[in-house]
Design a protein around this nucleic acid. Structure first.
Lengths: 161, 161
DNA sequence: ATGCATAGTAAGCTACGCTTACAATAAGCC
DNA sequence: GGCTTATTGTAAGCGTAGCTTACTATGCAT
């Protein structure tokens, strides 16, 4: 019956998986004694791929608010894993770099991540995994668009779409 | 380089999608004036499919701790959407039922959920969605197993795997 | 120079989950 | 029966991951 919503609907399953994944990742990171939260780990990994970017850029790539990123950076900086250097081209801005000390940590995070995902995806073929990853990226793109809409609804007006 | 972890790895994308999905759902529910948080909505929907179960059972099905569920139930009960009835067979236990007042709300949640997912999955064919849902359920099952392992590691011992 | 825009941050809030400790009850065992 | 142990639900308090709002410092355009 339609009065019995399916708890296995895609959205619910997705959220279930994400919650469990995060908590499993947290447990792994804690066990490995890395001393980071999953969010900090995620941030550090992102920074490593965006070496020398501004905070706004990083935040946007990560899909979080600049303030949220700033908090993570405070923590990562106090641990000595990243640096904030003034942008010579704009004295308001700061450029973010990982420190040499972060190298081993990033590798460890990577290892934990890979091992966990191997466990979690066991029983699913590589082509299917690739497909899922691809479609999830599509979902993410759709969600990004959605957020932009709701952030600037005044511009949308009755433009019809 | 292997020293540059891919921020588009399956795990990261999954967590991204889940975060955005939850926040989009939150926005929708808030806009619709349902007066619930996404977690409460998720709980209510689950209860509707498990009418008359014990709290422990529901918590287990939802993959959360009994205490976490208890908090949601407090809130849902104070809003008049669920009832806790004593279990005639066990005076420690309580059985959870939705109230008639919850019917319309559950339908609304369902609507919001469906509309959101239609938006978010636009551009992906139904067969592919079905496949993704299926594989995600597999991931969820793997994650459940993982949690049980870490909850009772003493039993696992060197039992081979 | 004046006025608006932009980069980062301080302060404080919400949602979602957890652990630990406990009361009440049930169930197994002599 | 009486004792011990297990189980159900809950009170209290914590941590993580985000957000918004308001502010400072700086840049840019007129």
């Amino acid at each position: 019956m339609s009065s019995r919503p399916d708890p296995d609907a895609l959205g619910f399953v997705l959220i279930d998986v994400a919650r469990m994944l995060r908590s499993a990742f947290e447990r792994r990171i804690a066990t490995a004694g890395l001393g980071l939260t999953p969010g900090e780990a995620r941030t550090l990994v992102r920074i490593a791929t965006l070496e020398g970017s501004r905070q706004l850029d990083i935040a946007q790539r990560m899909g979080i608010e600049p303030m949220t990123l700033s908090t993570y950076l405070d923590r990562l900086q106090s641990l000595g894993f990243i640096e904030r250097r003034p942008d010579p081209a704009d004295r308001r801005a700061k450029l973010i770099f990982t420190t040499p000390a972060a190298g081993a940590l990033i590798a460890s995070i990577r290892t934990e991540q890979v091992e966990l995902m191997e466990h979690v995806t066991s029983g699913i073929g590589p082509e299917e995994l690739e497909l899922i990853r691809d479609r999830l990226k599509r979902l993410r793109a759709n969600l990004c668009a959605l957020e932009e809409d709701s952030a600037a609804p005044a511009l949308a007006k009755d433009a019809g779409r």
